[in-house]
């Protein structure tokens, strides 16, 4: 940089540069604007959205009000001019939701205070404005989610017509696997806020089947003499998960939160007379899982800040 402004800290890291843009607080949103989905099953699924007005792409940080819940920002969508929806997922059944701190570069906000320091880029737009509460971070880390959201596949679900209740299948598919990251070198502030875009996805399915035979006559050497019918039922239960994080005292955990679930069933009936097939019928229903796999497991970025600084 031959001209302009540059401030660095003792570590030589850039704090303010007229070549870049600092992030500044645009808005603090105390609770979700929309509650899109909730169930107490599958570990608890909460899908909510926070709506914000921002002239540029927002960078959302969220608090974690509970150490027993998992959280993640799953998408940012520009719904209309300068209007953005920030979608957040949360596990568990408690109804305490994160506060959302929306940051963006200084073009997205206008200061009203007269005092402060403002740095401009060479195009005349703001790079830094102390009046707009610039972002300072406490630390950051890179996390990887475990390959499998659940330690063992569920058993004992009803193979007939997806007959197990949502509570039963949800209990069997509740995610329980995570990786732990100690933050001894990334001290968590009293009220930490996290930037964590969720990319990891996983789907797990479990197949159950049962067969029955009806014989109207007697049997000879195990074979039906007369009319018989073979029945077959199967059900494939599945759950879809997204990567999430949870905070501890001095840890950050990378785990999973269920976001969708379903079940597909198949029924067939084959008829025979004296061992000769004379007809079959069947039906199917429910929703079919796409793929029993885990995607996007590369290291995910977590940036930590002190939310109390922006209250």
């Amino acid at each position: 940089m031959s001209s302009g402004f540059l401030a660095t800290n003792n570590s030589g890291q850039v704090l303010i540069s007229s070549d870049t843009r600092n992030l500044h607080l645009i808005e603090k949103i105390n609770s979700p604007t929309y509650y899109d989905y909730y169930t107490a099953n599958y570990g608890g699924i909460n899908i909510v959205r926070y709506r914000t007005n921002c002239a540029v792409t927002p960078v959302p940080f969220f608090t974690m009000p509970s150490t027993s819940s998992w959280y993640g920002v799953t998408r940012i969508t520009n719904v209309s001019t300068n209007v953005w929806d920030i979608e957040l997922i949360k596990s568990s059944v408690n109804n305490s939701f994160p506060e959302m701190y929306v940051f963006a570069d200084p073009r997205a906000s206008t200061a009203t205070e007269a005092y402060g320091l403002k740095v401009f880029r060479n195009d005349g737009t703001a790079s830094f404005d102390s009046r707009l509460r610039p972002l300072a971070v406490s630390g950051g880390l890179s996390v990887v989610h475990p390959n499998n959201p659940i330690g063992s596949l569920p058993y004992g679900l009803d193979p007939r017509y997806c007959g197990s209740s949502e509570a039963t299948s949800g209990g069997a598919f509740a995610p329980d696997q995570y990786n732990q990251y100690n933050t001894y070198n990334v001290s968590l502030p009293v009220k930490p806020m996290f930037y964590f875009p969720s990319l990891a996805q996983a789907q797990r399915e479990s197949f159950y089947s049962v067969a029955e035979n009806e014989c109207d006559g007697g049997t000879y050497k195990g074979n039906c003499i007369g009319a018989e019918r073979d029945y077959f039922w199967s059900s494939t239960y599945w759950a879809f998960y997204r990567g999430a994080i949870k905070k501890g005292t001095n840890q950050v955990f990378a785990g999973w939160t269920a976001v969708d679930f379903g079940c597909n069933w198949v029924y067939t009936r084959d008829s025979a007379l004296l061992g000769i097939g004379n007809g079959s019928s069947g039906s199917t229903g429910g929703t079919w899982p796409y793929s029993n796999e885990t995607l996007n497991l590369s290291a995910a970025t977590v940036i930590i800040g002190d939310a109390a600084r922006y209250d």
């Binding site: 401030a7 660095t8 800290n9 003792n10 570590s11 890291q13 850039v14 704090l15 303010i16 540069s17 870049t20 843009r21 600092n22 992030l23 540029v56 792409t57 960078v59 570069d105 205070e113 007269a114 005092y115 402060g116 320091l117 102390s130 009046r131 509460r133 610039p134 972002l135 300072a136 971070v137 406490s138 630390g139 950051g140 940036i303």
Partner: peptide, 25 residues
């Protein structure tokens, strides 16, 4: 270093802070 205060005298930013600057989005 440098401290930047608001009109109420509260520290808003300091060269003892750490941050990440946005290059592009």
């Amino acid at each position: 270093g440098m401290n930047v205060f608001n009109s109420a005298g509260a520290l808003t930013y300091s060269t003892s802070d750490v941050t990440w600057n946005q290059v592009d989005f």
